[in-house]
Nucleic acid binder design. Structure first.
Lengths: 339, 339
DNA sequence: TCTTGAAATGTAACCGGTTCCATTAAAGGC
DNA sequence: GCCTTTAATGGAACCGGTTACATTTCAAGA
């Protein structure tokens, strides 16, 4: 029944209720010093006029948006979802809303980094797996808008990180300790415009193998497009080598699952003939009894959100680097090498 | 180097550049009537002071947020991602930003429906797969904020829908035409607080079977939690029946893939011994050569976003219902029944 | 009864932009 | 050279809230 935008404002309410706009505002923000009778009268008027305060005006007046933004790539990947849940859990009980900005291509990242602090209307920012350049980091740290990095780091900012190098070591060490010496590493492309976690894990893998006196075998390192399907193809290649590996360290659970998919097709029993270890501990890993490195994804979301809230709450916080824990979860896809 | 929020405003710029704030505003919005010399002087000052206009103030002044919101459940599912891409494609070339609100549980839906029109700051809304109640629909249609429904419908609103009943018929009809009579339907829970697409597809399936004179066999209908993993379990149950089906219609590609996963384990060849048809045509379906019903997910996003932009552009549009097309894609997982 | 102070309310400035309208400066017409 | 137009610019109101401060109300204390 409404015609063209006859928006009711706080002044309309004030007029109808026969009070001042200040009083209406007080009622809306349930300030304590409004007489009960007045309060009721104002509420009645608000209902009657079907009045809704304009959030934009409010934001301008109080100088805050009560919104925090999160920029992250690959929103569809299970590991990112897991972190997101951690963030949401914390924010749900705060006064802040969460707005998600998805980055699929590097250009988007730069566009967001450039604009968000200005064009977007957020009080704080979480940036996941997207390492800023020095210049961008400077912008963030000198900006009015506090920023917390999750899963990437920069000396000028607050960061929540996992030690991917150590994670790579842990996975490789587990396989070595089981007696394996033909250990392959199956991964996303190591060179990426996003956070090079896979590269660190790779370095950890190389390190442990070297320590164990296992010569580097380039054929055992295979990289390719992310995703379960592609992992299958890569796994097939590895397992068809003349001298196939007896263990595969996949840089993500999703890829490890791809390996589990194809092994039966090739008549390879897991874990008897092939040990497989993943990384992340996503829900599907539990279901498939996949041995993996739990990198506390959920917790990284929780910690990041909490840190941002602290800063927004006024806590003075210098740049820092906070680690989430790593845990080797031994399940059913790894076993001692049979001679 | 900055201390506590010494935010530079348009007035600071005006003062430094020795012009009026009106002129600065004109420069910012590159209005035509500013002399070239003045324009340069103002830009120089803007750079010098490192000034960034406050978007909130601008929004308040112009009365628009230049943001559109999308509410959708299961943001992690491939089918929803596909729609989202369609939306983003259209919005990318518009002046609007997209903000995503994810709904995982029904309560969130109601909270968003209640608040968004008021608390949130968007110019328009897209609602995906979340049918509003009559009351909510009334609120939307009488609200200042135009709303378009995608994948659900209501007589009072603009809707983009797919004919799930017909889709169910198409899938079932395909199998019947291939000679199958033992046709199972594997699905998410039919009762859902979200859009009951699966129920419509189910109805279509029942209808076609009845027309073909195939008696209803309750054992052949199995419902359960969504997801590939759960689909495997359900598929196993179906295929272990005393008189197993020769064809399975899965209500989503993800579930169909689950069926493809387990069939080999049970020694069942596809499509020779078992025909499988999915629904959605997600990217993985292409890769796995899955026969499926393409419900133009991407296109539904495109159409929905376009319609919303039209309305925001001033087009008067009465409630309507626009269908996206359905196509049976015959690939390699369905085949004639062998006697 | 008159103070006095707390409680309740009102006034008006402010947040940081946009834009209508008035004013001034420059250019064109005769 | 003067008047009319047009181009540039400035002044100030406005968007719709919040809030510091001033003012009024009213009950308690002297």
């Amino acid at each position: 029944m409404k015609n063209t935008t006859p928006t009711t404002t706080i002044r309309d309410v004030a007029k109808h209720a026969n009070v001042s706009i200040a009083t209406v505002s007080r009622v809306l923000n349930d300030s304590s010093d409004v007489k009960e009778g007045t309060r009721e009268k104002v509420w009645a008027t608000i209902e009657e006029l079907n009045y809704t305060p304009n959030p934009i005006a409010r934001q301008l007046a109080i100088g805050r948006t009560l919104t925090i933004g999160i920029i992250q790539p690959y929103i569809t990947l299970p590991s990112y979802i897991e972190r997101l849940r951690g963030v949401q859990q914390i924010l749900a009980s705060s006064e802040y809303d969460l707005v998600i900005f998805n980055v699929d291509i590097p250009e988007q990242k730069d566009a967001y980094f450039r604009d968000l602090s200005r064009k977007m209307r957020v009080d704080g920012m979480l940036i996941v797996s997207l390492p800023p350049t020095d210049e961008q980091a400077d912008n963030f740290s000198s900006s009015r808008i506090p920023t917390v990095l999750i899963d990437s780091d920069h000396p000028k900012l607050c960061c929540i990180v996992a030690d991917d190098l150590e994670g790579g070591r842990m996975a490789a060490r587990h396989l070595v300790e089981l007696g394996h010496r033909k250990i392959a590493y199956l991964t996303d492309y190591l060179e990426t415009p996003f956070h090079p976690a896979m590269k660190f894990r790779y370095a950890g893998y190389r390190e442990v193998l070297e320590e164990a006196g296992i010569p580097y075998q380039p054929d055992y390192v295979i990289e390719g497009e992310r995703g379960r399907i592609n992992a299958r193809v890569m796994a097939k290649r590895l397992l068809s080598l003349d001298d196939p590996p007896t263990a595969i360290f996949a840089s993500s659970d999703t890829q490890a699952l791809g390996v589990l998919d194809v092994a039966p097709e090739l008549g390879i029993k897991i874990p008897e003939r092939l040990s497989v270890i993943g990384y992340d501990n996503i829900p599907d890993a539990v279901y498939n009894n996949l041995t993996t490195i739990d990198q506390s994804l959920h917790d990284s979301g929780v910690k990041g959100a909490q840190m941002l809230l602290d800063v927004l709450g006024g806590l003075k916080m210098p740049p820092c680097k906070k680690y989430v824990s790593l845990n080797l979860l031994k399940r059913k896809t790894t076993a001692p090498l049979l001679y």
